[in-house]
Nucleic acid binder design. Structure first.
Lengths: 279, 279
DNA sequence: CGCGCCGTTGATATTATTCAAGACCAGTGG
DNA sequence: CCACTGGTCTTGAATAATATCAACGGCGCG
């Protein structure tokens, strides 16, 4: 495992789609109706060619719906590490699909305290918290240089009205958001420090795995303090737990490089029953 | 303050609407279009005559919309203390507006642990967690004998499509749900026991106050253990905090009877700045 | 090089949990 | 009427978990 302060990508990262150049005309061959002139758009990566497609908002859409969906957004927006994508109180105009990078979502107490409510990575959607009110209740800041696709919500909604598949996608997204929050409340309300950290690491691992990255070795994008904020712990406690888990042989951690050495045992720690092995 | 084990209503409870008998023909005079024969319905309390109207789903609707909304549900459903209204995993068919009583909402971890995620009282809506998925992720159980109005969701949605006011109501509801969850995460993640309990009491007080009950004196409907589950504390801790707050003169508590003696100080405890006075 | 941020670790303090005992109260059945 | 029971609530003492305070090392960066 290498020190990661410099490399700004996961330990084992097959990032292909973002490098593949647009090949105009090729995607035109798709059996679909009219869509805007792709050539005039600057550096737009279409959903159809995006490797994240199946993890993203258009997950499960058929080719036809996909192109329809693709028309929704005009291009990507770049964020530099630390840039804020959303501000609590800001008016809600669009959902954002993370194409590259990762962001932290945080909520604010009346007295100004800020708490991390989630970490979102490539393929995940940000901004759902604004759907209901029309204004955001969270901050979203880039943890590293990132790129997002903005999906104007009025157009999305309009399209959803006509297209059940897209409507369903939005639903699924909201559902996931609710489930995530419930899971987090469970964590904050009833888990001990070790369980919280293990749960956090397993969650990240699973998400990386689903995206084709290693599910056992990855690089954290956030500081100990941010992890602590997310888990309801102080940064020192997080650090200690990392050390303890390492001493117990469950993980290997050097700074932000993390390797899960004994996932079954980690799962056990979290209270999940571990299938003895096989199937 | 009186011991409350017997009285099943808040300390000072102006429950009028539920006693007022239906006066057939009267509401017919409302300037609205066709609606089903009210006489055949058993004991339906119409929104228009419900004192909770402005705290409930149809909050803010004009008379015309109100009648339209009123057609949505056929009647009330009674629950006895302990009855489950919703089961996690059950299919989502309707939202429920609490007309009388109160319920606790709880979420379940994979390993079976259960945690109270919220307490809902008269005028509040239950079942929103199912909107996204189509199946519920929470349990809802009556804390006392209660009565709810079931609002079939397919019909509500249909109506919302045509009526912006109703659509907006549903939105507001979802927004409130999100805000509630965020607030709870903040509480679980960054407050100490005293702050949590104070926050809990102030929250209840505010909700009672809005409903016309006393905002400084009320009766808890849940056990110490349930409070603890909600606040991420053990029941003994909850009990101790109650005692300490009482010793400090901030509250007066005897079992489930609670009186807030120094709301400003309680607010201060929670981190809210207290306006010195005036304005 | 020196600075600032980050992470680790130790010593100590604080907070919350656990274990245990007993009080209170409502309901039950003798 | 009484005793008995089960559930709830309170309280104390011991313990465990986490936070706080403080020191230091590493690393990137100007």
């Amino acid at each position: 495992m290498s020190s990661s302060r410099k490399t700004d990508s996961p330990a084992t990262a097959p990032d292909k789609a973002s490098v593949v150049p647009l090949r105009p005309g090729r995607e035109r061959a798709r059996p679909t109706a009219a869509r805007p002139n792709v050539v005039t758009l600057r550096a737009k990566t279409h959903c159809i060619q995006c490797t994240l497609r199946e993890h993203c908002l258009p997950a499960g859409l058929e080719a036809e719906d996909l192109w329809e969906f693709d028309e929704l957004f005009e291009g990507q927006r770049r964020l530099r590490k630390g840039d804020m994508l959303l501000h609590a109180g800001g008016t809600f105009v669009a959902l954002y699909a993370i194409r590259v990078g990762s962001l932290k979502i945080s909520i604010l107490a009346e007295d100004g305290r800020e708490q991390v409510a989630g970490y979102q990575m490539a393929g995940e959607i940000i901004g759902l918290d604004g759907i209901a009110t029309g204004c955001h209740t969270c901050n979203a800041a880039a943890l590293e240089d990132s790129e997002v696709c903005a999906v104007p919500f009025d157009r999305l909604e309009q399209m959803a009205q006509a297209n059940p598949a897209i409507r369903n996608s939005v639903r699924q997204l909201l559902a996931a958001e609710v489930r995530r929050n419930h899971g987090h409340m469970l964590l904050l309300g009833s888990m001990r420090a070790e369980e919280r950290v293990a749960s956090f690491l397993l969650n990240l691992a699973e998400r990386y795995r689903r995206r084709g990255y290693s599910g056992s070795e990855f690089v954290l994008r956030m500081t100990r303090e941010e992890i602590g904020s997310y888990l309801g712990l102080k940064l020192e406690t997080v650090s200690r737990v990392f050390s303890r888990l390492q001493a117990d042989g469950l993980i290997q951690a050097q700074g932000r490089d993390v390797k899960l050495l004994d996932p079954p045992q980690l799962n056990h720690l979290v209270g999940r029953e571990v299938p003895p092995s096989g199937l």
